[in-house]
Design a protein around this nucleic acid. Structure first.
Lengths: 113, 113
DNA sequence: CGATATACCTTGACAGGCGAAGTATATTAT
DNA sequence: ATAATATACTTCGCCTGTCAAGGTATATCG
């Protein structure tokens, strides 16, 4: 991956929620979707992804259910809850704010477009 | 503060280096400058700031020297090194890339401006 | 039958942020 | 005078999210 762990830290849950807001999905598929969306520049590590699922489910942000296996192994599907949708909405707002703040702080003095 | 720890994680060193690229400075002043630039929305916690200094100095990114006290207590000034300047430049590039990647992943489907 | 792709799970280490507490000096208010 | 506040730095130890490493199980393809 070409993006540092610390730069992604804190975004994992939001990324997962954003995926789930499109449609119910499962770990493996979500990760493939992320790789595709970023042209292979980024992927979630499995341990990171599954620990995010655990936190999200504990926080009532997602619900899970075992789904049918068309091809490989069994899949645990996740769906976003109203709580999760609200958290996602807030996280998006926070991200916009954080972006602006960080930009203000790290962009070079003269580099104002 | 209104920006989550995990969203800031990994940016602390870059923020400090960016400040030092303008002029030599010391911890307290850097933090004040950051608060001013962000209209009070963000500040580095002391422990965070000083541990960043330690890492940066160990990594040859900054050098420090004791400076004169015009008003309060003694100050430890920091200056950015060529290594630090290079790291800063790379971190800025990384930030731009990370921003785009995160945007792609968390922005709502229909919300493309 | 072995290799590969799909799919999930757990453990333990590591690193950075930060609360809390401490030290010391100068200024301002009471 | 003295208490409070602002300036300024430092250290300790906890917490949390990431991830390397290892494990399990099924289906497909050569």
């Amino acid at each position: 991956m070409s993006i540092a762990s610390d730069l992604i830290r804190g975004h994992t849950e939001t990324i997962v929620l954003a995926q789930l807001s499109e449609r119910d999905s499962y770990g493996y598929e979500i990760n493939k979707a992320i790789q595709q969306k970023t042209d292979g520049l980024f992927e979630l590590k499995e341990a990171t992804l599954y620990s995010a699922f655990r936190r999200l489910e504990q926080g009532q942000c997602v619900k899970s259910y075992w789904g049918g296996e068309d091809t490989g192994a069994r899949r645990r599907y996740y769906s976003i809850t109203p709580v999760g949708a609200a958290v996602l909405a807030q996280n998006r707002i926070d991200w916009h704010e954080a972006k602006e703040i960080i930009d203000k702080l790290i962009i070079a003095e003269g580099a104002l477009e």
